[in-house]
Amino acid sequence: MIKIISFISLDNIVKAYNEKIILHHINLEIVNNQFISIKGPSGVGKSTLLNILAGLEKADSGKYILDCIEMHAQNLNELSEIRGSRIGYISQYNPMIRNLTVRENIVVPLLLGNYNQKQITAYIDELSACLKINHLLDKKIDKLSGGERQRVGVIRALIKKPILLIADEPTGSLDDDTTILVFHLFKRLSESGTTIVMATHSHLSSQYADKEYRMSPEGIFLNVQTVGDM
């Protein structure tokens, strides 16, 4: 039997806050170029799991390997560096820098390194057209609605063309039509080389995700329905 080398491998991940265990022995294998969605009741630990994947926090125990890097063995500083170079992260909270325009907010991740102005402008235009906020690019971020801001957050996470996109409820404030735009974009990106792990409550995700997992206090399980679809 051929052993598939996973892009992401979680082995017995445990995470507790103040002695309250949130993640019990999570095991998960994700191959690359996939669009994964995770569902589950509020408070079950989806965001916690995604934060661990994004290297924002560390599991109490267990192994996490990303693209052959032993993430569990890195400290938070090293994890930040890895996040900066390879991981796009969409936060459930979706922070923005006020007083800046949409465009300025989008390029913040790039300020940490050098980037090609022309190429980037084209890419921003492409992504924002795709999510239908291209007419808002030069507006102040404070003037945008929650849904518009959420799409800015999506574009910001993609601007560095990460190999892994962690998306924590990226469509929470979006209507179904707009949600579909985002999922559609994710689908396309995953096909062209970005692995996407998304937590969502949206009922539309199953139509776009390659795999859908269900999280419960007992653990994380592949959603049989989706498996059936495949």
Partner: peptide, 16 residues
Amino acid sequence: QFDTYLVYIMSGVTNN
């Protein structure tokens, strides 16, 4: 400035 710091952290800047 908290949100600004969050954006940086998300983008790969360390908290420290």
